[in-house]
Design a protein around this nucleic acid. Structure first.
Lengths: 211, 211, 211, 211
DNA sequence: TATGAATGAGGTTTCATTCAT
DNA sequence: AATGAATGAAACCTCATTCAT
């Protein structure tokens, strides 16, 4: 038992060590510029060793994505806690996401990498694991909406669906940010984003009290 | 003049021929599986010849994207014309987009390829050209919203912004479709999608007449 | 006759035009970065047209080399004229060459290109034409040495051979400049160069009057 | 330890094997005609494998150059040892170099390749490594000159500088050999070369005893 | 006289993964 | 448990020259 635990602990340590190396490179060079050999060199282990702890590059990246989602989760939660009214919470969540996409571009990219991937690249197993983390993020918003409904601030709507829609909308908008120099007039994206969030929230609130 | 015209025509033909080959491969093998040499082989010309007609792979792909956007544009337009009430037009537009993302996956992927690309890969020139086509698609919806406003069906809102938001939302949702087996319960995406569209439209309509 | 002359004149003009384009690119981008198509574009003519006026890229480059040699020739001549004593003339010639290799790097590179070329790339015809220009440069020094001999300043030596040796030595030295950060201590090349020139001249002068 | 040593030995063997293939091609086809894939094919390994042992083509070529310089070094040393008087030693060194440039043209070309290269292509690291080998060659002559000075045969001059000048001069002359059919009269290059060497040596010797 | 489309081999380098040790 | 050598296809792009028009 003792030795088994030790083994398990060492395995985790090793995975961490590899992940640390990968993360360091991810932030330093960006998603497309890192290879398994580079990660191995950075971690000061052999390439083969990585494959002992991770089945594939995707699995390794998935763990990084999970990290990113966890970070987004905690940031979102914290930001929502700061505000007491429900609409304010959601606005905060939205702005946290926009900020996250910039300040933690590497994490955002890797999340997008999995979400945009043309081909099916996950093992179902892997997919579930990732989505679990994503779910936590969604749940924060779902919760807020539910609370809003309970408190009578929001209409009696499908909280789950709207939470998903909330994130999907923001995700789409952030992608469209690429068009800022052509389709969007420059400097207007922030406004568009804020406007869109308000528009979304207006959907939720009971009566036209919400402006 | 006659000979010049002929030359110009031939040049256009050649570009088309190359594009045909690229498109064929794109549909057969998907975006990530095609290379310039494969396109050359398919088109039965030398690799260098492609580079005579297209400055880079990106430029070639951009033209495919433009095609895709044009196709989306015409489909959207046609679908919107079928319905006379404005909300119905928008719903049609949305469903056309969802269908397009499935039926014309290759085109959707290539559009997403440019929109998701981590790095800046376009010449500003190229970017403008592409975005122009994208703009047409957006404009269809913008137009509908404007008409809706004029007719008194919709609130006096920023039609441009909402048109962009419309597409961004759908774009985001379609990406989240990947999560259907985990975060979304299977078979619910269609419902989520429809629900989301309705939710968006409810934003626009004057009074709570819209149900 | 008249029309023939005209033709000949036009042909020369055309060659000039092409050469101008090539030279411009040579200076702007360096020897290795220019291609025939680029030259054609710069000259605003078709690629094929260049091949009407020049048989090959080498021939075109040869003409540029000839230009470079002519420039070196005139610079050398002028510099030598400034000084009345023969040793001084030679020192000036040497320093002009060193300066030329820096200030007119593109010309120096192209001269070196032909001199270093591993393979036989010239038509004998071409070779003669180029060497004629090179000969002029050599002759300047040969002449000085001869005059020096006549005047009793220099020993009765083989002026031709020593003129060639003079340039070969400098040419070799300038190549060794590449080693300045390793074999040579930095900042010493100038000294080495000056020292070498003096050493060479000491070979020529009668008696040990020369210091 | 034993196994580690074995690994290291194998690695060296592999590098040798690759180098053998490269050298073979270099001699058979010349510098400009060989590519990495050809080398791989010749060595009967994958292209990637080469890149496992050599970081770049330059690094591989650098090793060949080092070989060439070592060969030149040993030839020079041996030739100098045959002669007891210092002037004779130098004459031998010079003729060895001339012979080397013919008999080992491929090596000479590759040395020239690095020395003539227009652009900076080396890692500083690589450069140092190469120059170290070149330095050995220079040092042979430097040593002879120093001994000559000590023995009272040569003047008290800067042995280092003159050693460099020695090689630079010969290097330049050998390049000018290309001109033998035009600027030089054919069959005279040997004479010019010998004459130049003598002329150089005359610079060194004390008094005009040297003829 | 002028054009410019076409060639297509050739260039170097990267990379996820495997497997014998 | 760890290694790291080996793979080899695939990537994109360049370029001097030709030749039918």
């Amino acid at each position: 038992m003792n030795i088994k635990e030790r083994r398990a602990w060492e395995k985790k340590e090793r995975r961490k060590q590899i992940l640390d190396a990968a993360r360091k490179l991810l932030f330093a060079k960006g998603l497309n510029a890192i290879s398994m050999s580079q990660i191995a060199k950075q971690a000061e282990i052999g390439v083969g060793t990585i494959y002992f702890y991770y089945q594939s590059k995707e699995e390794l990246f998935a763990e990084l994505q999970a990290e990113g989602l966890e970070l987004l989760f905690s940031k979102t939660k914290k930001a929502c806690a700061k505000e007491s009214d429900f609409a304010g919470k959601l606005r905060n969540a939205a702005h946290v996401f926009l900020k996250f996409s910039k300040d933690n571009k590497a994490y955002f990219d890797i999340i997008n990498y999995f979400l945009s991937a043309t081909d099916q690249i996950f093992t179902p197993n892997l997919k579930e694991q990732i989505d679990e983390h994503g779910n936590k993020v969604i749940f924060v918003v779902e919760n807020i909406i539910e609370e809003g409904i309970k408190s009578g601030t929001f209409k009696k709507i499908d909280a789950r669906r709207l939470a998903i829609l909330f994130w999907a909308t923001l995700f789409g908008l952030i992608h469209f940010q690429k068009l800022k120099s052509t389709i969007l007039k420059r400097d207007t994206f922030k406004n568009l984003f804020g406007y869109s969030v308000d528009n979304f929230i207006s959907t939720l609130v009971l009566k036209e009290v919400y402006k």
